[in-house]
Simulated assay, not measured.
Amino acid sequence: MSIRFGLLALLDQGPRYGSQLRAEFESRTGTTWPLNIGQVYTTLGRLERDGLIRPEGGGDAKQQLYAITDEGRGALDSWFTEPVDRTQPSRDELAIKLAMAVGTPGVDLPAVIQTQRRHTLGAMRDYTRLKADALRAESTSAQPASADDIAWLLVLEQLIFYAEAEIRWLDHCESRLVRLAAARGGRQPLPPPPPAPPTAPVAAHRSTNRRGASS
Rank of each mutant, 00 (worst) to 15 (best):
P34F: 02
P197V: 13
I37T: 08
E26W: 00
E82D: 12
I113T: 05
R184Y: 00
S2R: 11
E164G: 07
R184S: 13
A132E: 13
A163R: 07
R28P: 00
G212P: 10
T199S: 04
G45V: 12
N36A: 15
H205A: 15
P55C: 00
T42N: 11
A95M: 09
P89N: 00
G30R: 05
S207C: 06
D148L: 09
S141I: 04
V107T: 05
G14A: 08
L153W: 04
G6I: 05
L52A: 01
F25E: 09
L47E: 01
G74S: 11
H119R: 13
H119L: 15
T29M: 01
R86K: 10
L10H: 05
D50H: 08
R49F: 15
T120L: 12
S207W: 08
E138W: 12
Y66E: 02
Q88L: 13
E157A: 09
A23K: 12
L135Q: 11
R179D: 07
G122S: 08
A67G: 12
R179I: 10
I68F: 02
Q88M: 08
Y162G: 10
S214N: 07
G186Y: 04
R211P: 01
E24V: 02
Y127C: 03
H172P: 02
L94D: 07
G38A: 07
D92W: 01
F80S: 09
R176G: 11
L154Q: 15
R91L: 15
G59V: 01
K62Q: 10
T128L: 05
I53P: 01
E138I: 11
S141E: 06
T120A: 02
L94I: 07
L35W: 12
A61L: 08
D77P: 01
A9E: 15
L10Q: 01
F161G: 12
A182T: 09
S141W: 11
R16F: 05
A145L: 02
P105T: 00
A203I: 05
R136E: 14
A200I: 07
A75I: 13
T32F: 02
D148N: 14
P83W: 05
I3F: 08
Y41T: 01
E56V: 10
Q88P: 04
G106P: 02
L177F: 03
F25H: 11
L7P: 03
A99Y: 04
Q143M: 10
G74L: 06
A183Q: 13
L11G: 13
R118D: 05
S214G: 14
P89Y: 05
G72E: 09
W79S: 08
L35D: 01
E56R: 12
T140F: 07
G72Y: 11
L170P: 00
L7E: 07
Q39Y: 14
E166K: 15
Q158R: 15
L10R: 12
Q13F: 00
I53S: 00
E164T: 01
V112A: 09
R16I: 03
G51N: 09
G212W: 06
L11F: 06
S214C: 10
L154C: 09
Q20C: 02
A182C: 03
D50G: 06
S214Y: 13
A145H: 02
H119G: 09
L135H: 14
R22F: 00
L11V: 04
S215E: 15
P144L: 02
Y17F: 15
P189K: 08
A61Q: 10
R168D: 13
G103C: 08
A183P: 03
Q39C: 10
E93A: 15
S27D: 13
V84L: 13
T32I: 02
P34W: 08
